[in-house]
Design a protein around this nucleic acid. Structure first.
Lengths: 194, 194
DNA sequence: GTCTATACGTGGATAGAC
DNA sequence: GTCTATCCACGTATAGAC
């Protein structure tokens, strides 16, 4: 059915290698071998090693952005929306922790132009979260003093997953995502006056 | 007063270089130049480049552990204790974001033996947080179902600072730390029945 | 403990045939 | 579009003098 092109094999190989050794320590020879081709063949598809990293970063950020946007678009009140966003965003980072780790930690290895493009994806992700918090503050669903700061903190929970999550650990991605969703709701919903 | 030894100059140079280029991309020549010595002189103090990273990691983790332990030892109730711990731990990670970034992101570049030692520091840090949450649950100050998960999530807020904090950004370390402390309290303290 | 000089392996990228 | 062969720069670590 799905024909795996050389381009896709190359990207998968790059993800594997970058995740195992880091961007700098990965050799183009290693990527080539994993993709089942010669070192020279890599350069037919990508001018530089950095170009491979950039492609992985773009696709990773596009996927994460799509996930949080889809979650933000569900029917229901703002609390349900937030819960869904955090659950889905955390799940994505747990399931794709390898890609997530690469794109987060190798950001500085990109060229300035590519860095700027990726930074823009990140701003878009933050905007989705801020918009939901602001909307909820407006109608009283949320009590949040510092919307940008709280948005960033909530996203931190999900993103930091890539640093420590292991598919072989005892806690499942789903359980962690559920916990994060509940913590995000606690962070944002009004508390009774004491 | 304080005499800066070659050893300390070397460590400072290593931190600078690792922070700028990452561990793998940093050359021993670069470290040597920054420390004002020849490439060969580095090897008088450290057998390998990895040994420099390990030393930075040990000192960084010891400092962070001391900060959270000191905060956990203050007088007051569990809520005040948690607030202090998060505030101090976040402040440390903001102020020392360069070192924090190195020790968090270059963990895999350590030898297996060194990795195990650093992992032990991390377990100690998590234990401090879990112990405070457990004590607060026991006397009703906290309402936390998943103590290990929530402890980890709270620490995530602080640690993820090293990924995005910039001393040149508009929000100060103190403001962020204060926000994190309030969010941690919201995550853990009981909510009125609705 | 610091230097200069260097051995030796490795890596990104290219040349040119098929 | 893929190969083999290779260029050439670079990086870790060491040798040996002072």
């Amino acid at each position: 059915m799905s024909i795996i092109t050389s381009r896709e094999r190359l990207l998968q190989a790059a993800v594997e290698a970058f995740a195992e050794k880091g961007f700098t320590a990965t050799t183009t020879r290693d990527i080539a071998t994993r993709a089942g081709m010669s070192p020279a063949a890599v350069y037919v598809h990508h001018d530089t090693k950095e170009s491979l990293l950039f492609t992985v970063s773009v696709e990773g950020h596009q996927a994460a952005l799509a996930v949080i946007r889809t979650a933000a678009a569900i029917e229901g009140d703002h609390v349900a929306r937030l819960r869904q966003m955090v659950r889905e965003f955390s799940t994505w980072h747990a399931v794709n922790s390898r890609v997530g780790r690469i794109v987060q930690y190798e950001f500085d290895a990109l060229t300035p132009e590519h860095r700027a493009e990726i930074a823009d994806y990140r701003r878009q992700i933050e905007r989705v979260m801020r918009d939901v918090l602001s909307a909820g503050v407006a109608d009283g669903a949320f009590d949040v003093v510092d919307v940008p700061g709280t948005a960033r903190a909530i996203l931190s929970l999900s993103i930091d997953l890539v640093r420590w999550f292991s598919p072989r650990a005892s806690t499942s991605a789903g359980d962690i995502a559920q916990l994060h969703a509940e913590l995000a709701v606690r962070m944002t919903t009004p508390r009774s006056p004491s």
